[in-house]
Amino acid sequence: MGQGHDHSVSAAGNERKLAIAAALTGGFMLAEVVGGVVSGSLALIADAGHMLTDFASLLLALGAVMLTRRPASWKRSYGYDRFSVLAAFVNGLSLFLIAGWILYEAIKRFQEPVEVLGGMMFWVALGGLLVNILAFWILTRGEDSNLNVRAAALHVLGDLLGSVGAILASIIIMLTGWMMADPILSVLVTLLILRAAWKVVGESASILLESAPAGLEADKIERAILDGVPDAAGVRHIHAWSITEERPMLTMEVDGKPGADPKSVRLAVKKLLHDRFHVDHVTAEVDIMEAGALPEQA
């Protein structure tokens, strides 16, 4: 009972932190768009695009925490965790569109420079930096091992660089009047967006395609079982995939040595995979060999 209560309290705390951080980030993202349009700063708009990625990641993390409370059903036996992966994939693809638009506008400004109001740009960018610092502090205060919260905090930390870039561009414009600082730094911020988008799309696509998670290669699993389970004579038809990054799954068939107890072999295999590979969901079919028989090949 105690563990269930602690989990409920932790989930509620995560929801609260993520909701506050999302409200801060989303609210100031709109302010940056307005400030960027009024001041003429592409760097501010680019930083707002990066802040949009943070806002989306915070909402995804919040949704994932909320959805994990919903029980699995006969129709969705794995629950609703995969929804966050699908949303991350779509969000990642949209980031490429945002980055493409910013790069297009930057190229136009290299050809035809636009006057930027450095003072307004500075104060809006400074406000964005303070919002990011506050959101990061909210997400990281206290002790929490939730992966979604840690990932969201890293997104916010990355956005600090975008705010710093916009501040640097505004200072250069105010001191020198060199308008090229705005599109140049907007391109640098865009590279941050593309890096985040590439990682999000790649990881989410790998999960949606049910690729084997890193470290769960079939040959490694087979060797670990044959070396670590004395009554296992062979392993075949190994399939590894994941529902989310935190929920790897394994199925396999195991040949038990003559006279071995199928239940004991199955429990030993599951314990080994849990202890060595950190996989909690394992389906292992155990067939006991007849004396003198050879293990079947995969």
Rank of each mutant, 00 (worst) to 15 (best):
D182A: 03
R195F: 14
D275R: 07
L208F: 15
S242F: 07
D182K: 02
K271Y: 05
S211M: 08
K270E: 15
A240H: 03
E203T: 13
H278G: 10
I288M: 09
P213F: 06
S264C: 00
A197P: 07
A205H: 05
E253A: 05
G215Q: 08
L216Q: 03
H274Y: 15
V229Y: 08
E245M: 09
V286N: 02
V279D: 15
P248C: 06
V265H: 02
V279C: 13
S206W: 02
V187A: 05
A233N: 00
K271H: 08
A232H: 01
E285D: 12
L294T: 11
L216M: 04
P183G: 06
S186D: 03
I193C: 11
V200F: 01
V235R: 07
E203K: 08
E246R: 13
L294Q: 14
V189H: 01
L208A: 09
V200I: 12
R266W: 06
G228T: 09
W198N: 03
L209F: 02
V189K: 00
P183L: 07
V189L: 02
G202S: 14
P295F: 04
D261A: 06
R247S: 09
A233E: 06
S211P: 00
A197D: 11
V265C: 06
H239F: 13
A293Q: 12
G256W: 04
L272H: 08
P248M: 07
H274M: 08
I207M: 07
D219F: 10
A214Q: 14
M289A: 04
F277N: 04
E246T: 14
A240R: 05
A214V: 13
P230M: 06
I221S: 03
D280E: 09
E290F: 00
M179G: 12
A224M: 03
D182C: 01
V269M: 04
D219I: 15
M249F: 12
D219C: 14
V235P: 06
L194M: 12
E285L: 11
R223M: 15
H237L: 11
S264V: 08
H237A: 08
L294S: 12
A214S: 10
V187I: 15
L209H: 01
L209E: 02
M249T: 10
G228W: 12
K271Q: 11
T283G: 04
R195K: 08
M249Q: 08
L273R: 14
E285M: 14
I288F: 04
L185N: 10
P248K: 13
V254E: 00
E290A: 09
A218G: 04
I184R: 06
D255P: 00
K220N: 11
A181L: 12
P248H: 08
R195D: 04
W241M: 05
S206I: 01
A240P: 06
D219P: 07
M252C: 13
K220D: 09
K270V: 13
L191G: 09
E253W: 01
I193K: 11
E222H: 12
F277E: 01
D227F: 14
F277K: 04
L209K: 01
M289D: 01
E285I: 15
P248Y: 13
